[in-house]
Design a protein around this nucleic acid. Structure first.
Length: 470
RNA sequence: GGCGACGUGGCGAAGUGGCCUAACGCGGGGGUCUGCAAAACCCUUAUUCAUCGGUUCGAAUCCGAUCGUCGCCUCCA
């Protein structure tokens, strides 16, 4: 069984065949660190995370690189507005990004290269393009890529360069270039902007350049998968292909993966639309991190996903269902002989789950398989057909699937002594059938975020997940 | 003006020629269990897949038209 993925360039769903057997190289366009990322940005990061987790779960080695764009117009403007250096602004929001990523349980990329630390590699790339006749200088010290020198331009985005409405919504460029469609590789020095002294002269790199230079530095001139949001298809990735392939003469990326937009209020979530939600704000409003992760992951990556209070609440409820099962399995005790049907049940669930994700990361049927399993396990718990070891086996199976999803609660950590004492007090109150005391202690624990439930195995507890921003 | 995606129950979302009188999650209604509660389980909640027409023995799934929504062509995940 091989994972199949939809490639934007060819429009086909094809089996993933890594250039190096057993080792997949993945590059993901990361954040521009001029402010906090919104959850729409995180949809694309988490979809890449899902991809990486799934490939690793399938036993493949994955090298995952995600860039940090720490120099561009927005950062320059933002730093100027705040009266600080661009480095300072970038540092602040890199820290913010990493914090949000941790909160949302995103796997840590193997490399998080920063653009400002890779200027020499970018300069070298531009030199190759100049030497090959694919780039030219202008009077202000800028260097542009000559689209006319690259006939394949427009293939990724399926745009006909002749039909492009370039310039219509863009004021006449302040830089002078031969053709309005040419894109900048290197921006000449300007007053008040950071500048690097390089073999190309003074200036700073254009945005598209960094991804080509850094991806090729860490993953090779040809690599397996490149991910990003659909809004990067044009011009960003189109330009990356042109400058990379024109420089190396080799195919740049084998498979292009693009996730659709996260929508809020029926429109794409975007700062310019004013309809954004940020991780820290949502958490402050009471959202649970795992519910947020689930909400961003729960629809197929190539379909628009709507985000709302309702979707977050639904995600929180789904997470609660998983939490309740985990708590039930952890508390389950039975000396019974065990359930002979369990192994088959778990095997079929894993099979269905994996098969779904192999099909271009089809998350919906994968979640369907997961929740079918949840119901079947709950039934067995209610019917008490499982043995204690069976419960452990089932829990391990759930945790195995969760290697990919990353939404189950952490293994129950110890409670503070004070709360532990309340639990014990409640247990003895129940033993003496002192319902008033028992109920009062249950309320106290609930107020402390601990949900207590009574079963024939005695009372069991779990931490309350914050049910969305209710 | 060009290119593209999509329209499935109260909401979200699978399914792309017969096993679909349509998965899964959320929500609603009824029930079981329970000291109470919670959780869980059971039953129920679309004879229907934007509309119209066509192809086919057979269509949510293919074709055409119409209406509607969203996205890209510009910084953008």
């Amino acid at each position: 069984m091989t994972t199949r993925l939809h490639d934007t360039l060819t429009g086909a769903v094809r089996p993933l065949e890594p250039l190096e057997a057993g080792h997949v190289r993945v590059y993901s366009c990361g954040p521009t660190v001029y402010g906090p990322a919104h959850v729409g940005n995180f949809r694309s990061f988490l979809f890449a995370d899902l991809l990486v987790r799934h490939l690793r779960w399938r036993g493949l080695r994955v090298t995952w690189v995600m860039n940090l764009t720490d120099v561009d117009d927005k950062i320059i403007n933002g730093a100027a507005a705040a009266g600080i250096a661009i480095d300072e602004l970038a540092e602040r929001w890199i820290a913010g990004f990493l914090e949000d990523a941790r909160t949302l349980r995103m796997s840590h990329p193997d490399v998080l290269p920063r653009a400002t630390e890779h200027v020499p590699a970018m300069v070298a790339l531009v030199e190759r393009l100049l030497a090959g006749g694919h780039a030219y200088r202008t009077d202000d010290g800028s260097i542009y890529f000559r689209i006319a020198s690259w006939p394949a331009y427009g293939r990724l985005a399926r745009l006909d360069p002749g039909q492009m409405r370039v310039g219509e919504r863009v004021a006449a460029d302040e830089y002078t270039k031969d053709d309005v469609r040419d894109f900048v590789l290197w921006k000449g020095p300007r007053e008040g902007e950071p500048s690097w002294e390089t073999a190309l002269g003074a200036g700073r790199p254009g945005w598209h350049l960094e991804c080509s230079a850094m991806s090729m530095q860490y993953l090779g001139e040809s690599f397996d998968i490149h991910t990003g949001g659909v809004d990067l298809v044009f011009p960003h990735h189109e330009d990356e292909i042109a400058q990379s392939e024109a420089a190396t003469g080799k195919p740049f990326v084998r498979t292009w993966l693009h996730c659709a937009h996260l929508q809020m209020g029926g429109r794409k979530m975007a700062k310019s639309e004013g309809n954004i939600a940020r991780v820290t704000e949502l958490l402050a409003a009471g959202a649970s991190p795992r519910a947020l992760r689930y909400a961003l992951l729960a629809a197929h990556y190539r379909t628009a996903l709507s985000f709302s209070d309702e979707s977050l609440a639904a995600a929180a409820a789904a997470i609660e269902r998983l939490d309740a099962l985990v708590a039930a399995l952890e508390a389950y005790r039975s000396d019974g002989p065990g359930d002979p049907s369990l192994a088959g049940l778990l095997g079929r669930a894993r099979e269905a789950f994996g098969t779904a994700l192999d099909d271009d990361l089809a998350i919906s049927p994968a979640l369907g398989a997961l929740f079918d399993l949840v119901r079947d396990l709950n039934r067995r718990i209610a019917d008490r057909t499982l043995s204690s070891p069976d419960a452990d086996t089932a829990l391990a199976a759930l945790r195995d699937l969760d290697t990919v999803l990353g939404v189950l609660p952490d293994p129950a950590d110890a409670l503070p002594d004070a709360l532990d004492a309340l639990l014990e007090a409640r247990a003895s109150a129940r033993a003496s059938r002192d319902w008033a005391a028992s109920d009062r202690l249950r309320d106290e624990l609930a107020a402390a975020g601990i949900l207590v439930e009574d079963t024939r195995d005695g009372q069991r507890w779990r931490r309350a997940g914050s049910p969305s921003g209710a």
